[in-house]
């Protein structure tokens, strides 16, 4: 009768797993709601900021500010990889890491040195195994971050850039498109790309600037980098929760299926056991009669 008890235990185990995945699903959906709200609140700010900045940047020559200037020789490239700290969210982190990895390999083939800055634990672990250099890493931050983190990491990246430790910086993050769609994206954040001045020249906005355009840029550009990074973090965080929700939903469904299958096996085994018991009794009775 051993397999019978074993199957029963297995059913119990699967049911418990299901409870966990279900709870995780609910936690993820609650967290997602918070994360989504934060993005929605931040978006108007980021959009306005981008508008004003690209307008400003199109008015000056790229030599006006070091963060705008494209360097002629690019020796080292920084990749800022934003991932989650925890797993159990499907292929989300893997996709992000692969995107970053591909970018890094491409730059490496062009003969550039690639250095990583990892925000979130999963990305750091992945990159460490692949043997790329990690300049800085910020593990265990994705659960409770605010603009301060973007400030800190942004300042760090900018200072590395100004010290010529990095000649270019890219950011890799998971863009939150919808509940079921999260896209890993790679964007260049340093030097800040200028839009074509020609296209903007017709714009009627003849502002008075205070202080000068250059002065404003000096003030706004570093912050722009941070705004971009913060946006990446918010997007990644929302995407993570959405991905986890989907993953846990699937897991819960799989548990249901497994319980069904196991119950069938259990019932069959139980019936077989009863049958063989009956056979024993009948056989015993026959033997007694003959005796």
């Amino acid at each position: 009768m051993a397999p019978l008890r074993e199957i029963k235990r297995k059913i119990g185990g699967v049911k418990k797993t299901k409870q966990i995945t279900k709870a995780m699903n609910m936690v993820a959906s609650a967290k997602l709601r918070g994360a989504q709200q934060r993005i929605e609140r931040f978006r108007p700010y980021a959009e306005k900021y981008t508008d004003v900045l690209s307008d400003l940047a199109s008015r000056v020559d790229s030599s006006a500010h070091p963060l705008l200037e494209k360097r002629e020789e690019i020796k080292s490239v920084g990749v800022i990889l934003i991932t989650s700290d925890k797993g159990l969210c499907g292929s989300f982190n893997v996709n992000l890491c692969q995107t970053a990895f591909k970018l890094a390999n491409k730059k490496k083939e062009e003969g550039k040195e690639v250095k990583f800055i990892c925000i979130g634990k999963k990305g750091r672990d992945f990159i460490r195994k692949r043997g790329f250099e990690i300049l800085e890493s910020y593990p265990d931050v994705m659960n409770t971050f605010d603009f301060q983190l973007a400030n800190e990491t942004g300042t760090m990246v900018i200072s590395k850039y100004l010290d010529f430790e990095l000649d270019e910086a890219h950011i890799v993050f998971g863009q939150f498109v919808s509940m079921v769609k999260q896209v890993p994206l790679a964007q260049q954040i340093l030097p800040v790309e200028q839009e074509d001045a020609e296209g903007q020249a017709g714009a009627p906005s003849q502002y008075i600037f205070e202080p000068s355009v250059e002065g404003l840029l000096a003030e706004l550009l570093p912050r722009y980098v941070k705004v971009r990074m913060y946006r990446g973090m918010l997007d990644t965080s929302a995407s993570e929760h959405a991905a986890r929700m989907t993953a846990m939903d699937n897991a819960t469904k799989n548990c249901d299926e497994l319980v069904g299958q196991l119950t069938l096996v259990y019932n069959k085994a139980r019936q077989a056991a009863i049958t063989s018991e009956l056979m024993d009794i009948v056989g015993g009775a026959e033997a007694l009669k003959q005796g």
């Binding site: 004003v52 400003l56 906005s205 003849q206 502002y207 008075i208 600037f209 205070e210 202080p211 002065g215 404003l216 003030e219 706004l220």
Partner: peptide
């Protein structure tokens, strides 16, 4: 509070950008 001191804005102000 602009960086060069306080400024006031009434309706129909000319376009202006200030830190």
């Amino acid at each position: 509070p602009g960086v060069y001191g306080e400024f006031g804005v009434l309706p129909s102000h000319i376009p202006f950008l200030s830190a």
